[in-house]
């Protein structure tokens, strides 16, 4: 049961492209990344099974059947991915309606706490900065 080299290459490329897209900020690109990754996984699962004729008793001798189980799993995975794609698209659309873009945003609260910590840490340094800022206009 040695894996087919073509499969391996396809899985590799799909995963690589998926990961790169996933690192983007725009939700639509992230979505594309997820779709590519999911397809990569599907091909990976497929390559894990045995090759052979159609797995129907009577048409193919027992030893030459392909493994039907990965295909069943892929079907399930495809359905799940389809639903999630629709949901993510809706989320991106909603975000675009609300904010005008679909970029994944930072955690605002987190930034506030960092600012608090900075204010606690060095008032003198902050003052200099503030003065400089006030001086410019």
């Amino acid at each position: 049961m040695s894996p087919n080299l073509t499969y391996v290459a396809v899985v590799g490329v799909l995963f690589a492209a998926g990961v790169i897209l996933l690192l983007e900020r725009s939700l639509t690109r992230v979505l594309m990344g997820v779709v590519l990754l999911a397809n990569g996984v599907n091909v990976l699962i497929l390559s894990g099974g045995r090759y052979g004729g159609p797995p129907i008793v009577g048409t193919t001798p027992d030893g030459e059947m392909s493994d039907p189980l990965p295909q069943a799993m892929i079907l399930t995975a495809i359905v799940i991915t389809l639903g999630l794609t629709a949901f993510l698209l809706a989320l991106a659309y909603r975000s675009w309606r609300l904010v005008g873009h679909d970029e994944v945003q930072d955690d605002i609260e987190d930034r506030r706490i960092v600012e608090l910590a900075e204010r606690d840490a060095g008032p003198e340094v902050e003052d200099v900065d503030d003065d400089a800022e006030q001086a410019t206009p």
């Binding site: 939700l27 699962i45 390559s47 189980l69 990965p70 799993m73 989320l91 994944v104």
Partner: peptide
């Protein structure tokens, strides 16, 4: 959603490898 999706993909990859 994005983080959970990533973990699902990893899980599924793991499943594929284990099955293989």
């Amino acid at each position: 959603v994005v983080v959970s999706l990533l973990s699902s993909v990893l899980f599924l990859t793991g499943i594929g490898l284990i099955y293989a």
